[in-house]
C-alpha cells in the first residue's frame, strides 16, 4: 500500500514537472507549480514528515502561487519560446543528472533503518529530547532548541527578504491617490463578502492554535505566522487593501517584522545573562525543562510575529503594484 502511494505520488510529481517545463502558458505553469507544491506536501506526509508537509502546503501551494499570480497579472501570461538555448541546457542538465544518478548507486537503500543518517546524531533527539526538553514533537525540540541558531537564521532570512521587497517596490505605492487603492475589492459579490467575514475569525483562531500547539502536534511559529497573514490577505482580497490598512498600516507591519527578530535574538541573550551560552534556555526558569519550555514558546512567538508581518508586508506591496499597474493603464 505504502509502495503504491509512493509510486503514484512520484509519477504525478514527474508528470507535473515535465508539463510545467513544456507549457508556454505561464498561468497554467503557476497553477501547476501550486499543484506540484501540494503533491510534494502529500509526499512529505507519506514520509512521516508532518511539519514539513504543513509548511510546504502553506508555502508551495499558498503563498508562492499567490505572489506569482500577482506578478503575472502585471507581466502577462504569454511566454516566448527560446529554442536556441535548449540544447545547451539539455547537455548540462544531462551531465549533472548522470553525476547524481551515479552518486545514488552507492547510497544506503531507501528507508533502511541501518543507514548512517539514522545511527549517528538523530537517535539522541528521539531518545533524550523528552527528558532534556520535555515536549513530544521532536521536530520542534530540534528546531527550537538543539538547532535553534539555524532557526534564528531562518527568521533573519525572511526578514531580509521582506526588507528586500520593500526596498525594491515599497516606496512607490505611497504616492497613489487614496480613492483608487481598492480596485481589488469586488463589492458586488455578496457571497464572497459574507463567506470572507465568516472565515476570518476561525482562521485567526486556528493560527493561534498552531502557534501554541506546535510542541505537541505539527505546527509552530512559521506555520502560524503564514496562517495569520492569510487571514488578513483574505480580508483584503474581499474588502480591499485600504480596509486592512486601516487596521494595520505598513509602518506598523514593518516594525513588527523587526520586532520578531529582536524577540528571538533577545531570548538568546537571556541565555548569556543567566550565565550559560547563547540560546541556552535552561537557566530561564527554576529547572531546566521548564526553562526550555519557556524559551521555546518565546522564540516561536518571535518566529510567528516576523513571519506574519513579512508575509503581510510582501502581499501589501505586491498588491499595491497591481493597483499602480491599473492606474497607469487607465491613464494611457
Amino acid at each position: 500500500m505504502e509502495l503504491i502511494l509512493d509510486i503514484t505520488l512520484l509519477s504525478l510529481l514527474l508528470v507535473t514537472a515535465v508539463y510545467i517545463a513544456w507549457t508556454r502558458d505561464l498561468f497554467a505553469a503557476v497553477m501547476l507549480a501550486g499543484i506540484y507544491g501540494l503533491l510534494s506536501a502529500s509526499f512529505f506526509m507519506s514520509m512521516g514528515a508532518v511539519d514539513v508537509a504543513f509548511t510546504e502546503a502553506a508555502v508551495g501551494a499558498g503563498i508562492s502561487p499567490l505572489l506569482m499570480l500577482s506578478t503575472l497579472a502585471i507581466c502577462g501570461r504569454a511566454q516566448r519560446a527560446n529554442p536556441q538555448r535548449a540544447i545547451l541546457a539539455l547537455i548540462s542538465v544531462t551531465v549533472v543528472g548522470l553525476l547524481l544518478i551515479s552518486a545514488t548507486l552507492e547510497m544506503p537503500a531507501f528507508g533502511s533503518p541501518d543507514a548512517p543518517a539514522h545511527l549517528h546524531v538523530a537517535p539522541r533527539y528521539l531518545t533524550d529530547s523528552m527528558r532534556e526538553i520535555g515536549i513530544p514533537n521532536v521536530v520542534t525540540s530540534v528546531l527550537a532548541s538543539y538547532r535553534a541558531f539555524d532557526t534564528l537564521g531562518e527568521v533573519v532570512v525572511i526578514f531580509t527578504a521582506g526588507l528586500g521587497v520593500l526596498s525594491l517596490l515599497g516606496l512607490q505605492g505611497e504616492t497613489l491617490p487614496r480613492q483608487v487603492q481598492s480596485p481589488m475589492a469586488e463589492p458586488s459579490h455578496l457571497v464572497l463578502r459574507v463567506v470572507g467575514k465568516v472565515l476570518v475569525p476561525p482562521i485567526m483562531l486556528f493560527a493561534l492554535y498552531v502557534q501554541f500547539h506546535g510542541e505537541y502536534g505539527p505546527g509552530g511559529g512559521f506555520q502560524a505566522g503564514v496562517i495569520f497573514a492569510v487571514g488578513f490577505i483574505l480580508y483584503s482580497l474581499v474588502f480591499g487593501l485600504d480596509a486592512v490598512e486601516r487596521i494595520v498600516n505598513r509602518s506598523l507591519v514593518q516594525a513588527l517584522a523587526a520586532l520578531g527578530v529582536l524577540v528571538y535574538g533577545t531570548v538568546g541573550v537571556l541565555g548569556i545573562v543567566s550565565g550559560r551560552n547563547y540560546l541556552d534556555y535552561s537557566g530561564l526558569a527554576g529547572d531546566s525543562v521548564t526553562g526550555q519550555h519557556l524559551g521555546i514558546i518565546a522564540i516561536e512567538l518571535g518566529v510567528g510575529i516576523t513571519v506574519a508581518a513579512v508575509m503581510m508586508l510582501v502581499f501589501f506591496v505586491f498588491s499595491a503594484q497591481l493597483v499602480r499597474g491599473r492606474v497607469v493603464q487607465h491613464a494611457s
Binding site: H120, V121, R124, Y146, F149, R276, N277, D280
Partner: peptide
Amino acid sequence: LGGWDAPW
C-alpha cells in the same frame, strides 16, 4: 550554541 554539545 544553546549549550548543546556538537554534533547534536
